[in-house]
Design a protein around this nucleic acid. Structure first.
Length: 423
RNA sequence: GGAGAGAUGGCAGAGUGGUCGAAUGCACUGGUCUUGAAAACCAGCGUACAGCAAUGUACCGGGGGUUCGAAUCCCUCUCUCUCCGCCA
């Protein structure tokens, strides 16, 4: 979320910029500021009373020691009265604070100046397109047909033991999956990211820290017995590593990567575009996360984008990079680049990665800070990206590399798969 | 799952009702000394909110309570450790 101080100082420009995200902030900011004013005055009245109460308590202590019980009793009465008053002030204070919180979490992050206006994904800006779209024969197939033809994935079996959206990879399909995970992790660690294996279940605090809670509660699988949530992305455990942390300047940039399965309920998304691997309840992803000094975060974003692009080039997949428009940009992101690969069996672009700079928006929630030259605590910037999400990479590899004699494995993967063809 | 012990500042570790935001040590920062370094000595050293500042308030795992006053007493939750049981 945004800082109140920032909203106060930049009210007009924030209202203007948030129009790019199709968000009308004019009234909500006024409400926040008014509540914050109220908070300050309530706070200071309460502080004054407590000051008096503390002084009285000390005095009583001294009086008792010097055997002046009667004088002490008079003070006790005053103290009781003060306590009454502070009680009500305290309760309205916590009410005000929770009201402020409720409003603040409704205000999206402000978009970077380069974010184009737009309503939907149709308005995203294609900034780069790389690679040739494969020209396949007439009898080309989508990956779900290829997967059953070559015994790579058993969707029915997953259906039987769990349900729709939980595929079972087998044989060379499972090996390809494992190869991709290992390859991605190697690429990331070669680029200086530290590899982690985090838990796949997180607690409520972590859900709040990265913003899945309270708003997107319905999108996560909730283990109510223990009040834990299955992670929808490794971003949640990785970024929460840094919750309530003050990092030292020389620690920048902090770079982590992790492979995890991701669990998403995908409530409400049925029908088209969900066949095969296109949309799943459980899928694998390798994530990269960076914590960076604000002045360097956009350079870092570029580096991360180039990193992902390099992987796709090595995999010989045709891809394009989109700068998300205001309407498609996520609530918490300031700037996001999406990667789409062309999947020639379905003749469509599939999103395989999303690389974002959240600036201080997540950090403010997480209380992730550093100390500046003057010793003041400032918010760090956080960034993350998929490097990469597996299922659609799997789908496009299988579709684009299909031949009459089987599916060709890209060279960089062959050391990992230990086969060069699926047939 | 059963029994017991515990949770204090970056770390270690005192503190069981008043002058405790908290001793002491280590670490860290600045200074003195030194050719340089070490040692020694001196000083500083948590976070948040309000305030130009002085300063005030809150925070000793979380929440609630007793009291004029709570790190300290009570209730409750969470977590950690030890022993036993079970187990990959």
């Amino acid at each position: 979320m945004l800082q109140i101080q920032f909203l106060r100082e930049n009210k007009e420009s924030v209202i203007e910029i948030l129009k790019v995200k199709n968000f009308d902030a004019s009234t909500i900011i006024d409400q926040v500021i008014a509540l914050d004013d109220n908070r300050k005055s309530t706070q200071s009245s309460s502080d004054e009373l407590l000051f008096r109460a503390n002084a009285i308590a000390k005095e009583i202590g001294i009086l008792f020691k010097s055997d002046k019980g009667e004088e002490a009793n008079i003070l006790k009465e005053e103290s009781v009265q003060i306590k009454e008053k502070t009680k009500s002030l305290q309760s309205s204070l916590s009410e005000i604070e929770s009201d402020i919180w409720k409003l603040l979490v409704q205000i999206p992050n402000i978009p970077h100046p380069s974010v184009p206006a737009g309503k939907s994904d149709a308005d995203n800006e294609v900034i780069k397109e790389v690679g040739e779209i494969p020209q396949l024969s007439e009898n080309k197939k989508p990956h779900w047909d290829l997967c059953s033809q070559y015994n790579l994935i058993d969707f029915e079996l997953g259906n039987k033991i769990t349900g729709a959206g939980f595929p079972v990879y087998k044989g060379k399909g499972a090996k390809l999956q494992r190869a991709l995970i290992a390859y991605f992790l190697d690429k990331n660690t070669d680029a200086g990211y530290t590899e982690y294996q985090p838990p796949y279940l997180v607690n409520e605090d972590s859900g709040f820290g990265t913003g899945q809670l309270p708003d997107k509660e319905g999108q996560m699988y909730h283990v109510t017995e223990d009040n834990l949530y299955l992670i929808p992305t490794a971003e949640v455990p990785l970024t929460n590593f840094f919750r309530d942390i003050i990092v030292k300047k020389e620690e920048f940039p902090i770079k982590c990567t992790a492979y995890t399965p991701c669990f998403r309920r995908e409530a409400g998304s049925y029908g088209k575009d969900v066949r095969g691997l296109n949309r799943l309840h459980q899928f694998d992803k390798v994530e990269i996360v960076q914590v960076q000094h604000p002045k360097d975060s956009y350079d870092t974003l570029d580096v991360m984008v180039n990193h992902v692009a390099n992987i796709l080039e090595e995999l010989e997949l045709p891809y394009r990079i989109l700068r998300l428009c205001g309407g498609d940009l996520s609530f918490t992101a300031a700037l996001t680049f999406d990667f789409e690969v062309y999947s020639a069996g379905q003749d469509r672009w599939l999103e395989v990665s999303s690389v974002s700079n959240f600036e201080g928006y997540q950090s403010n929630r997480l209380k992730l800070r550093y100390k500046d030259e003057n010793g003041k605590t400032q918010l760090c910037h956080t960034l993350n990206g998929s490097a990469l999400a597996l299922p659609r990479i799997f789908a496009s590899l299988v579709e684009n590399n299909q031949t009459e004699n089987g599916i060709k494995i890209p060279k960089v993967l062959q050391d990992y798969t230990r086969f060069d063809t699926i047939n």
